[in-house]
């Protein structure tokens, strides 16, 4: 493939990765920012979202759009409630101690993963997209005959993939509005800045924690619901989103939503472009190297505010 169309395809693929990654990583960043909990089970909530989408869409049947709409509404809600109850059942009992919650969420990871294996089974299951049209993209070249437009092999995208990018952007905008314009957002930010002071002002910190943990998981689940029609639901699919989310959150600055979204764009786009031009392994190597560099030269992350 020529350089031009190749780059365009890579950018499109990268944008999809970035969109889903932004949603997932913002969820992780939120739980860390507000609760100071490193949620190792975050990828499993992502997986549960995909599994729930498969379950809901196959139960509903009929046109795939109905199943999809139901999954978008129900899956994040169910996964969010599940996560909130895990918070109440496990993390709260550990007083949100940073070290012990890491171990506890590792435990959660295995429980959820093996639970999915028992309940959902070891096979990958496809979910039909609500709509999908191949959109061939033209390219231009100078030939002896002059300026010509042609349709190169493979330079195409799909209406549903474009929808993913759009939907993720809207969801992130919505989240930003919640965080900055609503009382819930204000209370969450207050808890993030100073837990003790928030308690002193009568904020029900424990309920805010459960809400935050649930919201973080719901965002991961939502990302999975969006991506599952182009991938498949599989009980081991939580690994990569977890790893990439950590990379993004560290680069963007722990707890900074703006930083997380920008880092997701950076990592997603570079992952797309590097893996198309070189290899997906190299893309992961570079992302990990970037994390190391950030940790050495700017430990608070590119957009972090530094240690309080």
């Amino acid at each position: 493939m020529e350089f031009g169309p190749h780059l365009m395809l890579a950018a499109l693929e990268g944008a999809i990765t970035a969109a889903i990654l932004a949603l997932t990583a913002v969820g992780l960043s939120l739980t860390f920012g507000v609760m100071r909990v490193v949620n190792v089970a975050h990828g499993e909530f992502f997986m549960l979202g995909a599994v729930a989408a498969w379950f809901i869409s196959t139960t509903i049947g009929g046109h795939p759009a109905w199943g999809f709409i139901a999954a978008v509404v129900l899956a994040p809600l169910i996964i969010g409630l599940l996560a909130a109850s895990a918070d109440w059942l496990v993390l709260k009992r550990l007083d949100y101690d940073p070290e012990r919650t890491i171990v506890a969420t590792i435990g959660l990871l295995y429980i959820i993963q093996q639970g999915a294996l028992i309940g959902f089974g070891p096979n990958a299951q496809p979910v039909e997209p609500p709509f999908s049209h191949r959109i061939a993209l033209p390219w231009f070249e100078w030939t002896e005959a002059g300026f010509e437009m042609y349709y190169p092999w493979g330079l195409s995208t799909n209406s549903y993939k474009l929808f993913i990018i759009f939907a993720a952007a809207m969801l992130l905008l919505g989240l930003w509005l919640i965080m900055t314009r609503t009382k819930v957002g204000l209370v969450m930010r207050a808890t993030q800045q100073d837990r003790d002071m928030a308690t002193a002002f009568g904020i029900p910190v424990e309920r805010i924690y459960a809400l935050t943990f649930g919201l973080g998981a719901a965002l991961a689940a939502l990302g999975a619901v969006l991506i599952v029609p182009v991938q498949q639901a599989y009980y081991l699919m939580g690994h990569d989103p977890l790893l990439l989310s950590f990379i993004v959150v560290i680069i963007g600055g722990l707890g900074s939503l703006r930083g997380t979204v920008l880092a997701a764009l950076l990592i997603g786009m570079s992952d797309g472009i590097i893996s198309v031009f070189f290899s997906p392994t190299l893309a992961k190597i570079i992302a990990t190297l970037l994390v190391a560099m950030v940790l050495v030269f700017r430990p608070q992350g590119l957009f972090g505010k530094g240690v309080h």
Partner: peptide, 13 residues
């Protein structure tokens, strides 16, 4: 691997 479009541009014309 779960996503494959990124590999296909390596297919020569």
């Amino acid at each position: 691997e779960t996503s494959f479009t990124k590999y296909f541009p390596q297919i020569p014309r």
